[in-house]
Design a protein around this nucleic acid. Structure first.
Length: 300
DNA sequence: ACTAGCCCCTGGGAGC
DNA sequence: TGCTCCCAGGGGCTAG
């Protein structure tokens, strides 16, 4: 699942490799993946001949700033990932001569952008949940989609004070902030609270901080808050440094696996022994999602 | 205003 | 071996 470290890895690679290039052509076999403009032909026409000025990340969104004051937004959701390479059409499907791009996981190509150097940006997405939108840059930055996002946890603005504030209090429209109800795992994954954390990293962060995922946020003491705050930064940085987690479908733009698996302590380790205390890792549902944790190290 | 639950998808695993 | 059933999961949406 692409979360902050995976999206950041993709964005850094694209920065290096496609900045300055121009979109020449667009192909898809699943027009629904383009949400804006709604009509694919309109999308194709609008993006043609736009130059990539910059590639950046906000939360789990990949944003291409284009000439003509347009911004291309891509959210990879669960199984989507962007690839860079060359593909050729064989019958009904696209194949690549790059061995890594022929891997099954990289072969669910549903969208292809051809650039002016004949390279292509491909979107492989098994479950077709990803979404692609082309915005007027200004409208996007003023959109609810962007404005409602919480702070970036690796930016300077994300201080311990700010973290405590947003975690414990919920802004009410035009009213006094109120204590936030909810379990810590759910709150960490709420993009309106902090941007970029998903199911894998929330589990790993809470293991690092030794806090139980069911812990209610308003009951967290300052010591626990500090541990969580530090763990967020530490774990996300390890995620980026190791070029992401590839336990599921996500890969780098070259189609390679990230190495965060070497640091994965609890996610999808139900029934295995805790790396610290040898207790058995549990898996429990929280709000429809599965949480993995050590019942001893992360005692409620 | 808020939350719980459905929905979008498809490969893979379980059960028979 | 092959069929059917069920599930994961980010985030948008709807019903309550």
């Amino acid at each position: 699942m692409p979360e902050l470290p995976e999206v950041e890895t993709t964005v850094r690679d694209l920065q290096k490799k496609v900045r300055g290039r121009t979109f020449i052509d667009t192909w898809t076999d699943f027009e629904k993946i383009i949400k804006k403009p709604k009509n694919f032909q309109d999308f194709k026409k609008e993006i043609k001949n736009k130059r990539i000025k910059n590639v950046r990340r906000r939360a789990k969104f990949i944003l291409f700033d284009l000439s003509g004051d347009k911004t291309l937004l891509i959210h990879q959701k669960l199984t989507g990932h962007l690839l860079l390479g060359k593909w050729k059409k064989k019958g009904n499907r696209w194949t690549s001569s790059f061995p890594l791009l022929s891997d099954r996981i990289n072969s669910y190509i549903h969208l292809l952008f051809t650039l002016d150097n004949e390279e292509m940006i491909g979107l492989s997405d098994l479950r077709k949940f990803a979404k692609v939108e082309l915005w007027d840059s200004r409208k996007l930055s003023e959109s609810e989609e962007m404005k409602s996002l919480g702070p970036e946890p690796l930016e300077k603005e994300f201080t311990f004070k700010k973290f405590t504030e947003i975690l414990k209090n919920k802004k009410a429209a035009g009213g006094e902030p109120r204590p936030r109800r909810g379990k810590i795992k759910q709150v960490l994954m709420d993009q309106k609270v902090i941007a970029g954390i998903g199911n894998i990293y929330s589990d790993e962060i809470l293991f690092e901080a030794r806090v139980n995922p069911f812990q209610l946020v308003f009951q967290l003491n300052p010591e626990e808050l500090k541990k969580i705050y530090k763990a967020i930064i530490k774990i996300l940085k390890i995620g980026i440094k190791s070029k992401g987690e590839s336990i599921s479908d996500w890969r780098t733009v070259e189609g390679k696996k990230g190495l965060f698996d070497n640091y994965r302590r609890v996610y999808q380790r139900e029934g295995e022994k805790c790396s610290r205390c040898k207790s058995m890792i549990l898996r429990r549902k929280i709000g429809g999602r599965s949480a993995h944790f050590c019942p001893k190290c992360q005692k409620l």
